[in-house]
Design a protein around this nucleic acid. Structure first.
Length: 380
RNA sequence: GGAGGAGUAGCGAAGAGGCUAAACGCGGCGGACUGUAAAUCCGCUCCUUCGGGUUCAUAGGUUCGAAUCCUAUCUCCUCCA
């Protein structure tokens, strides 16, 4: 049987591990490396699907845990699946709730069977197992589903991470077994292992032997340095099959996207652009710009002079600062649009650079302008 | 004209002799944010050469000690004429 999602390698950068490719899904074929905006509760906060499409988004995320709580998988199934429910006709990927095992750490209990949570809405006890996660994801109907994993803290002890990785592998196998729609939904496995090379190797080996249609790398960007993260990618990515997509979970700063692509990552997702947008910070070609700062009160130029997005073409820093200042929803819609466009456009530039075997040079130029080679990003 | 009430930091508002440079909220300023419990959270917000210096309408007074008690003055609000 053909997997629901396939990867086609188009070109590999001559000077790095970067790959130009295509992710072939039931809802379209999309170029990689790609950045996927996060829409936890079946909505990329403040953005209409039409806007996401216009800015160039191809795959977006939703979250199993949150949709399980509300409105419930039955309702989404009744609506005809997530695509119809939220009116998004391109790709959808659902996270398994594995990250919530990490982020709700103080109210959960992990056993071999699964995870007992106290849900964050009313404290009710809930139980999520690999099978349960798959059942929910089967009902939600995304193109790509993630298997339930445990995302241990980066600086957790070796012994703990070793046990955790082994359990995540067993959970992956159980998920694969429970999966009812492999012909139209792809289940990805998640490589864990924190910063331990042999554990990452073991994790990758376990999962590759199960032959998933795609692999993700989890447990990064959780407090470790960029050097540590890149180091883990350096030895982990080569362990994954060339003919399958590789997805680095939860990474979304511009520099990390480039550094990830350089190491052969094809997919990224992150709440960073949308979250910081709502909190008044914009990503620009010259580093982060805190638009709510007083110094932009009289600045009638665009957020980023080098950007041609809807927000930058039509609205000034002074206006956007004003909107955010007074709490108008339109303000955070503009910053959200801009930040997502910025990363989506960045990935397009990365793809072009790979096609030209030029990603290393692109990285140099980008980092120079971004201020990443300096001690601090420079604003302008 | 008579009777009550009130004046506290940019604003609102606690405080009713020492633990008060003065709670709390708003506003202002700055920071954080990476598989979203986040349009959230955290700092700072009288002056300072960081030793200290000036504050609670104003001016006196009582007290070891006053935003807090007393006296006068000014301003504002309510009710009655």
């Amino acid at each position: 049987m053909e997997p629901a999602v396939k990867y086609r390698l188009i070109h590999q950068d001559k000077h790095s591990g970067a790959r130009l490719g295509e992710l072939i899904t039931p809802h379209g074929t999309f170029p990689t490396p790609m950045f996927m905006p996060v829409g936890t509760q079946a909505s990329v906060k403040t953005m209409a699907p039409e806007e996401l499409d216009t800015m160039g988004a191809t795959v977006i995320l939703a979250n199993t845990y949150h949709l399980w709580l509300r409105p419930g998988p039955e309702l989404i199934e009744e609506a005809g699946g997530l695509h119809r429910f939220m009116n998004w006709q391109k790709g959808i990927l659902t996270d398994s709730g594995g990250f919530q095992v990490f982020s709700l750490a103080d109210t959960r209990h992990i056993t071999e069977d699964g995870v007992t949570f106290k849900n964050h809405l009313n404290g009710a006890k809930m139980f999520l197992s690999p099978e349960k996660a798959i059942a929910i994801e089967n009902a939600l109907g995304p193109d790509i589903m993630m298997s339930l994993d445990e995302c241990p803290p980066f600086f957790e002890s070796y012994d703990y991470v070793k046990k955790s990785v082994a359990r995540t592998s067993r959970w992956a196998e159980r998920g694969l077994k429970a999966h009812k729609n492999p012909d139209w939904q792809a289940l990805f496995g998640i490589v864990q292992g924190a910063g331990f090379r042999d554990l990452r190797e073991q994790s990758a080996k376990d999962l590759v032997s199960m032959d998933f249609p795609g692999y993700s790398i989890g447990g990064l960007s959780v407090g470790e340095s960029k050097e540590e993260m890149n180091h883990v990618l350096d030895f982990t990515t080569p362990l994954l099959p060339q003919d399958k997509p590789r997805y680095l979970m939860g990474v979304g700063s511009a520099d990390a996207l480039i550094d990830g692509a350089l190491r052969g990552i094809d997919m990224f997702d992150c709440v960073l652009p949308t979250r910081i947008a709502r909190n008044g910070t914009c990503m620009t070609s010259r580093g982060r710009l805190v638009i709510k700062n007083a110094k932009y009160a009289h600045d009638f130029g665009p957020l980023d002079p080098n950007c041609d997005c809807y927000a930058c073409r039509n609205y000034s820093r002074a206006y956007i600062r004003h909107l955010i200042h007074v709490g108008e929803a339109f303000g955070i819609r503009l910053t959200t649009y801009h930040n997502l466009y910025f990363l989506l456009h960045l990935m397009q530039q990365v793809r072009e650079a790979i096609a030209n075997d030029d990603l290393l040079a692109f990285r140099e130029d980008f980092f120079e302008a971004y201020g990443y080679n300096k001690a601090k990003a420079k604003n302008f």
